[in-house]
Design a protein around this nucleic acid. Sequence first.
DNA 1: GGGCTTTGTTCAGACGGCGAGCAAAGTATC
DNA 2: GATACTTTGCTCGCCGTCTGAACAAAGCCC
Lengths: 419, 419
Amino acid sequence: MSPVMQTPERRTHRRDDAGRPRPLADSVLRMIWREREISRAEIARRAELSRSTVSEIVSLLLPTALVAETGTGPSRGGRRPIVLQFQDDACLILGVEVGASHVAVALTDLRGKVLVWRHRTHVVRTDPKGTRALVRELCDACLDKTPGSRRRLVGLGVALPCPIDPRSPERVSEIVLPDWGGRHGLESIAEAYDVPLMVDNDANLGALAERWWGAGRGVDDFAFVKIATGIGSGHVSGGNLYRGATGVAGEIGHMAIDSHGERCVCGLRGCLATFVGSQALVTKARKLLADYPGSMLAANEPTITTIEDAALAGDPLALRLVNEAAEHLGVAIASMLNLMNPAKVIFGGGLTRVGDLLLEPLRETVRRRTLVSSVDASALVMSELGPRAGAVGAATMVLKAALHDSRLFPTSHRRAEAS
Amino acid sequence: MSPVMQTPERRTHRRDDAGRPRPLADSVLRMIWREREISRAEIARRAELSRSTVSEIVSLLLPTALVAETGTGPSRGGRRPIVLQFQDDACLILGVEVGASHVAVALTDLRGKVLVWRHRTHVVRTDPKGTRALVRELCDACLDKTPGSRRRLVGLGVALPCPIDPRSPERVSEIVLPDWGGRHGLESIAEAYDVPLMVDNDANLGALAERWWGAGRGVDDFAFVKIATGIGSGHVSGGNLYRGATGVAGEIGHMAIDSHGERCVCGLRGCLATFVGSQALVTKARKLLADYPGSMLAANEPTITTIEDAALAGDPLALRLVNEAAEHLGVAIASMLNLMNPAKVIFGGGLTRVGDLLLEPLRETVRRRTLVSSVDASALVMSELGPRAGAVGAATMVLKAALHDSRLFPTSHRRAEAS
DNA sequence: GGGCTTTGTTCAGACGGCGAGCAAAGTATC
DNA sequence: GATACTTTGCTCGCCGTCTGAACAAAGCCC
């Protein structure tokens, strides 16, 4: 039962695993997914099940087309095993990222591979209606490029640029998105495709994407810090997303790192966001331009993109801005490490374009500022998924839900609508 | 499977619920515990089980003496139900708190009620051997006061004043307790009683105690902030303890709230602990004494206790110290709220003696400093368990483990040693 | 080729939980 | 007070799930 699922489940059942056909079938399916290729005997050994049970479960899995027999594997001193292979292309998932000023849609397979990608800038904050139409348009475009995709669609995942309370996932914050009327209103799109809709915050889904496909693979406790217009973080704890009481956990941008600093919109003084957000950097660049008359930034009105470009080109002013941002970010990260004790911190979002220019001074700051040294410098890394993290994470949320309740897969027993 | 259990489980089993007699028996037992008194039919309704299944499970539970039939309840329009009552006094638990400078032991029943309490100050940090002997002595004293207690003992829980990594619970931090040689060495005591040993950090166990018996009842996401020699926090998320990657989560005392502040032992500048810890308050009191010649604190060398007393008596200097501590604490709490989004914050430890003197300015600071207002002022409250939170929490850890695996209860099928 | 191992299947059986049915013991209605 | 109805707790047969034993097929090793 995903806390962020909006559409009701297709069948009712009483307890978490009861009423479901073959309680262990899903865990066997997940193992095949995880291992990609595995034999029945190997499943039995790893899951500590009897070979007869595994055999019976596999015979139920084969007709779903999610798993296929693909030849034989190497002998272990006896009969050669039949290789069972998870069919990554058996189904498709739509992952949508709605940012502050853009919409991106990824059509993925069951291994997180992006098959079709659509991206368009849009005034999301002020135009909810147009944004909804755009999401629909880009989703349709993705599906139309892939024959038969509607029939094989598992679900629609959406990353939104505001906190989502798992208890009422249809609501969006009226503070962050004042023109949206408190609702994202994307239900009709999922209904048009007859699939479940799931939504969550973009930082959470970025974290999820890194956990499954990126720098967070195999790491059960880490933080994903997204530096874009604002700064948000998603936290994975014990392998699962940490959401807090009302789903607004991860507002690392509003940690106070200097109680004498400037007042922030959130009410605190000296928030991290007042030092490191795009707007803060641009403002600071303007202020310092007088001291750096030869800077590349003097040519035009500075933007976050030109600052990044200048830093990569070695411009002293831009480098100073990045260095100071790293210093402030380091203080907040150090506090976060002491409080939440992740094993790793993954940085995503726009500013990560500058790569080690940001990361090196950041590592140095954190190294100087944590005695308990809950993480060493090597645990501060850049996102591996880059700008696609949000949309891929949205698709991953659907994949995760389906792998934990395989009845969500549209295999055989479901719809026969037109593709 | 508790992550902090040190002694191996009594029987081996393969999966979490497999190999265990009656998978649903423990959840029925927990329901009876939770409801105190309940009929078979009511259990069947709430757990969505058939009456026949419940009947059979109860017939297994009755011989354990954890549950007893105690008459009949009111009719609901038909035959009157037989009341099943959880027997809180069927077993006993030892909960130990080892503080920086004291040892306390509570012998509790299965409802967290403290039956015997022993407390003694001791130089814990510098005398590991004497501390271990003292723990043993106080435990023996508790057991000796209660006839037959050794036979009915479920386990030994210990709260330690340093982070505990669930993956190696026998280890203690060499930084926090340098004289202890990296190990707490309490295994032999549990072995002497032939019960499992479980250990965890004192802030975590304070949080657990408040969750089960205090201000955190029914709250699935909250933070417990312990203000004593240092400042630590325990976090409950989704009803369970949040431990982080290596069990050191909750070092709220080392959040940086002023990057220009004094350097802290931890490497950061302007840590909360440099403003609000006992030592910080005493130092500050000395510094300010010149400005407050009439202060009650001028009589003797100020200590944290005399400062608390003076504040309660209305002394201006002491009140100023408390107010400023509340202000700094408020900044850290606000940041923590933004990052972790608890529904409530519970304050424990020594400084809480001053009560609303601390809480009121704290609430005001937090109110001013959180726009997203993830908690309102009423969600900042004092501990309900006070100085016993640690020891009671240690016992609760054992109780929780036993209620999730009733084979830990020493009922019938176990030892017949001398009591 | 013979002995051994491994794989995957079949089949009888154990076990947990379920629903039907029933007696006991209550309430509601006349 | 008699009758009808409800609720409780138990017994019993049934079903689905998983298991172990047995077996054939297919490999390895000597």
